[in-house]
Nucleic acid binder design. Structure first.
Lengths: 194, 194
DNA sequence: CACATTGTGGACTGAATGGTCCACAATGCA
DNA sequence: TGCATTGTGGACCATTCAGTCCACAATGTG
């Protein structure tokens, strides 16, 4: 159909992945609605035309950003799981990573996006559920690896995920860091990891 | 300073509390930024002038709504606590109420507001922390009433609160209801309430 | 060098935003 | 009844919004 020969044209003056990262950062801090196109073009250093050529629209960009964040998050956890031989050690490391995080008010990008947009954007809601489910599955698998039976492991994984998202809300409100630490300890106790 | 005599004037044609409730409902469903003044005047049936006379501004209205919701929430939990002689029974009822809720995508108004606005509105963030703290204190007190020692009770209360807020995120994304049920069971187990 | 092709700056647009203002309505009191 | 006072409808305002458009820039190819 399309001509395949003779492509040329002016080269891009920016790295799309870098720009996506910059945009993600703005959405993460300010939320979707509160982020204006001027915010985005300033953060990415793109002109409006380049911006729309690269990302289509504000909403599409958010979906790109969501996928990018969620995939990176999952990949990090999977790496953490693979690095440890012992499933218990892996879970300890993951709980530490999940609940620790940076003590700023950014929280978790997924949580922020879901809370702000899920009811009005079914596509994003679906991405959210998919991410939650795959995280739960990863946790569940790990938990079974040291003898916990399937239905209990599933419940524990869901609980761990719930704690993670709740902690993200706590962090968004800058609740005292000690509180998060004690929740973390309780999470370890719940799984029988002393 | 001000004249105290002779007040009269046209009477209000609406109930401020009802209007506040209607506005709260819109904020709850759509979030703050996505709610326009037209949305609010339509939901409350107020003209713009009455709206501003009654509530000052969109942001002030949100703060009113937040206080109203948080106070009602706390009052409900306290009632639930007082109704039961047995602290364990009270906690069981509270966990049921906290995690059950309606199976729609509204989530928890406090969680929604904190996640969307806390970083950009320190006053609301403070309201959020205060609400969390008083809820935790209530839970902690109940937990100590059947013999759990103070530092542990505090950690358990914080964990319960974290689970509650995480569940609200789950609900916002319409995660399967069974998942919430199993999290609820885990919460009971955590407190040793079989 | 000429041309096709792709990228870019920034002016521009119509719609929607939160908020103001004022003429008029409805009350109590003298 | 007339006046002071408070409430209300809705026109109006400046600003900001997401998105479009086009003249021009920068490349590869012939």
């Amino acid at each position: 159909m399309t001509k395949t020969m003779s492509r040329a044209g002016r080269p891009r003056s920016f790295d799309q992945q870098v720009a996506l990262g910059d945009a993600l950062d703005v959405f993460w801090r300010k939320g979707y609605e509160a982020t204006s196109l001027d915010d985005l073009t300033e953060a990415t250093q793109l002109s409006r035309s380049s911006f729309y050529a690269a990302f289509g629209s504000k909403r599409e960009l958010l979906l790109h950003a969501y996928r990018r964040y969620a995939d990176a998050f999952y990949a990090d956890m999977k790496t953490l799981a693979d690095e440890h031989e012992d499933a218990k050690a892996a879970l300890r490391a993951m709980i530490k990573a999940l609940v620790d995080a940076r003590p700023d008010d950014r929280g978790c990008f997924c949580v922020n996006a879901i809370v702000e947009l899920a009811p009005s954007d079914p596509e994003l809601a679906e991405l959210g559920r998919a991410h939650i489910q795959r995280m739960c599955a990863l946790l569940e698998e790990l938990i079974t690896q040291y003898g916990t039976r399937r239905p209990l492991a599933r419940a524990q994984a869901a609980t761990l995920m719930t704690l993670t998202m709740g902690s993200a809300v706590f962090r968004r409100a800058l609740v005292a860091e000690d509180t998060l630490k004690s929740v973390q300890k309780q999470a370890l106790g719940l799984l029988g990891l002393t």
